[in-house]
Simulated assay, not measured.
Amino acid sequence: MTRPMKYALYALHRGENAQPRRLADTARRVEGLGFESLWVGDHIALPDDAPDSATEPRLEALTTLTYLAAVTDRIRLGVGVLVLPQRQPVLLAKQLTSLDVLSGGRLDVGIGVGHVEAELAAFGVGMADRAAMTDEHIDVLLKLWRHDRDHDGRFVTLHGVVQHPGPVQRPRPPLVVGGHAAAAIERAAAVGDGWFGWELTPDQAGETIARLDRARRRLRGADATRLQITITPPDPIVTPDDVRRYAEAGVDRLVLVPGSMTVRGTDAVIDHAATHLLDAAGRG
């Protein structure tokens, strides 16, 4: 038997949505309609030729989620995904813990290696080092959240330091690993609580979930808990039949990404979901 689908909205940090009043009003509306979560992305400095517009307004991810935490009460807050090599992990651990505390334990932490070479270079990160940095930064986050005091690695060294308070969620906020490459699948299976896939059809999602399940069993044994699967569909206007197919493939959450980051484009996605998905499911 499939579980009820969770519905999320992406991109209140971008375009015409990235205004304080618009952010607050839309977040409260989406929460009232029964969306399960709000997700934002993480790009800090894009080159002019980036696939995503470098000139479109784009707010910083964790700052935006902190603002959204202050204007909502129940809806979960996710970042999909943090470009982990661009983030200093000791500071990031404190930022994420603070956000989890201030939101009352509503944070989901998506993580990835990044793919925009010029953006990574702006932070002094080479493409060849990004995967190794990501894995070590994950290790540092987990150690600080466990109150471990020492880490001696290639990129980070900790000696006798600790952070308080710890996250509200125990043992920590869920880690949702993004990426479709073999290394990302292994990383999700090894350390993740979930996996984030971008613009996948139900068939594509099902194929990747099978890979994740095989890797999870190999790395963690037959009794390993299943990963929570988050997918953005190629088209945000999904039908109940689309939802059924995603659910049968093993997807837990659909993150709806507006085709344009305008008020009109975003509201169209919200209105469609409210009428055809949330109402049909008894609002979650």
Rank of each mutant, 00 (worst) to 15 (best):
M1Y: 14
P4A: 01
A11V: 05
H13S: 12
A18F: 00
R21Y: 15
R22G: 05
R22K: 12
L23M: 08
D25Q: 14
R29Y: 08
L33A: 06
F35R: 00
S37I: 07
W39C: 01
V40H: 00
G41H: 12
A45H: 12
D52C: 12
T55N: 14
L59P: 03
E60Q: 03
A61R: 04
T64Q: 05
T64P: 04
L65V: 02
T66Y: 06
Y67F: 10
T72R: 06
D73E: 15
D73K: 15
I75A: 02
L77V: 00
V79D: 00
V79I: 01
V81D: 02
L82Q: 00
V83W: 03
P85K: 03
R87F: 04
Q88N: 11
L91V: 14
A93T: 05
D100N: 00
L102T: 02
L102E: 08
S103M: 02
G105T: 01
G105L: 03
D108W: 11
D108H: 05
D108T: 04
D108Q: 04
V109T: 01
I111F: 06
G112D: 00
G114M: 04
H115R: 13
V116P: 09
F123R: 11
V125P: 10
V125A: 06
M127C: 08
D129A: 07
T134N: 13
T134L: 13
T134F: 13
K143F: 11
K143E: 14
R146P: 06
R146M: 06
D148T: 10
D152S: 11
R154M: 14
F155R: 02
F155P: 03
T157N: 14
L158N: 09
G160L: 12
V161P: 05
H164C: 11
G166A: 13
V168Y: 00
R170Y: 12
R170E: 15
P171N: 04
R172D: 05
G178K: 02
G179H: 01
E186H: 14
A189M: 00
G192D: 07
G192S: 07
D193I: 09
D193A: 09
G194W: 07
W195N: 10
F196A: 07
F196K: 05
E199Q: 15
T201R: 06
A205P: 06
A210L: 12
R211L: 10
R214D: 15
R214W: 11
R214Y: 08
A215W: 06
R216H: 08
R218C: 10
R218W: 11
D223Y: 09
A224N: 08
I229E: 08
P233K: 02
P234D: 10
D242C: 09
V243W: 07
R245W: 03
E248Q: 08
E248S: 09
D252I: 06
V257R: 11
G259Y: 14
D271P: 10
H272S: 07
A274C: 10
G284V: 15
